[in-house]
Amino acid sequence: MKVGEVAQLLILTKVTGRGSLEMEIKGGYTSDLLSNVMGQAKPGMIWVTMQGHHNVVAVASLLGLAAVIITGGTKIEADTITKADENELTVFSTNMSSYEVTGKLYALGIINRQ
């Protein structure tokens, strides 16, 4: 499933302008501990987090993630959006909790195959 399709189905708010919505999502990861994400998330995954800090962008770009969903209505720092656009990373915002978003992604068939 593509990033754009997921965004539509989950009614996510896109906060960035330059990232591709055509990227194929290859699984997902949910965590707010960035050091943990660095070690566990894989390229092409969609990442669900409550952190709005701009290091999120650095970690997502470093790993080549498909997109980031920032949950719980977390205030996203202006720096985060600027840096995401510079790195052509798509970032979404939602009022849903990480639990709900992750469940919905799973229900859409976005699961991690070994």
């Binding site: 501990l33 960035l34 050091s35 994400v37 701009h54 290091n55 650095a58 970690v59």
Partner: peptide, 11 residues
């Protein structure tokens, strides 16, 4: 801070 943010940026 390192655990939560993954790394500590210059800002």
């Amino acid at each position: 801070l390192l655990g939560q943010l993954g790394f500590i940026g210059e800002e």
